[in-house]
Amino acid sequence: MTQNNFIDGHWLIASDLDGTLLDHYDYSHAPVDELLRQLERRRVPVILNSSKTFPEMLELRRQLHNGHPFIVENGSAIFIPTGYFPEVPEGAREQRDFWIFETGLPREQLLTFLRGDAGEHGSPYLSFAAASCDEIAEATGLSPEQALAARSRDYSEPLLWRGSEGEKLAFEARVRASGMSTLQGGRFLHLLGPTDKGKATLQLLDCYRQYRDIDYRLIAAGDSPNDLDMLKVADIAVIVRAAHRPPPQLEEATRRRVIVSEAIGPAGWKETIGGLFS
């Protein structure tokens, strides 16, 4: 692992959840709880940036005592608590307790594509829209209540791929030709609009710089290929090791510092992020 030297200045942390801030198997965040409290005291915002849905993120923010903006469904929407900045960011809409940037496509548009594509090419996958809560719980390890929240999507559709690699490549090509995108996560292939975690992170970072008049720099933490777009835009990219696969490969860049954890999951998050701020 690259040596962790103490860093100073104003920093923003954008972090993936499953396998990074949360344990891949039991979703525990116990190893990072004290560090999150320390970062809060030091006024270092931790931005949750995940494939998870709005209802899932609300519950996790409550558990983590996190009151900062967050990014859902792999960059498809940015939620900023009302009043978090001095004024409503330009281009955001107001809904309930949040200012919202919608950068993805409505889920119904994605499902319309899937129905048409399945009629012509078949569907060698299980989509969340077609799955029961029990099937989602079995595939993810979530509780039935958590599976219901995971199924309540607005901007993306997870697919549990059951076909061949060739079928998958052909499917991804058809998706791109339709102006949409796919993203391989830890468990699922996600169908979504022309957005990603990195684009959404930069848009939110611009809000911080503009409305707080602070030149924040960015740390991004992730564990899988669907985090690479976020890691690429960071000043410091933290790659958290997973137990079941090698770390994702991030190309070298002159301005970016890359740290790979020795420990796995949230213990690796604590090791790397804690080392930067200790």
Rank of each mutant, 00 (worst) to 15 (best):
R43N: 15
T140R: 05
D18A: 10
E172N: 14
S76V: 03
M57E: 02
G193S: 09
R256P: 00
T201Q: 04
S76C: 08
L159C: 12
P55Y: 06
L192R: 14
Q146E: 06
H244T: 11
R61C: 15
E157L: 11
R37K: 13
D235W: 01
G185H: 04
Q146S: 05
P266L: 06
L169F: 12
E94S: 11
T201C: 10
P246M: 06
Q146K: 02
H29R: 06
H65L: 13
I239A: 08
G104T: 06
S51D: 00
S132H: 05
T182V: 10
D16L: 08
T195M: 06
S15V: 07
E145A: 12
R42C: 03
S50N: 15
F79T: 00
I219A: 02
I219G: 04
D227Y: 06
N74F: 07
E252K: 10
V44C: 12
S143E: 02
A243E: 11
Y211H: 10
E165H: 15
I100F: 03
S164D: 14
A139Q: 09
S15Q: 08
E40S: 11
S50M: 14
L159T: 01
I47N: 15
F70H: 07
P106T: 04
E73H: 14
A30S: 07
F6I: 03
R37G: 07
N74C: 05
S127F: 10
V44W: 09
E102I: 10
E108R: 04
L169H: 12
A177E: 12
R96H: 12
E73S: 14
P45H: 14
E145T: 10
E90F: 09
S224N: 13
I78K: 02
E262G: 13
P31W: 03
E252H: 08
P247W: 00
R255Y: 11
I100D: 04
G116P: 02
R212A: 02
G274W: 04
A220E: 09
A200Y: 05
E120G: 06
P55Q: 05
I80F: 01
S132Q: 08
H24D: 08
E157C: 10
D26E: 10
I219N: 04
A263W: 01
A130Y: 00
A242N: 07
G222V: 03
Q38D: 08
G67E: 08
S132G: 11
Q203T: 05
P194D: 01
H24T: 03
V72I: 13
E145N: 10
H68S: 12
S50C: 15
E90H: 13
A173K: 15
R217P: 06
I239G: 01
E251P: 10
L191S: 03
A150T: 00
A92H: 00
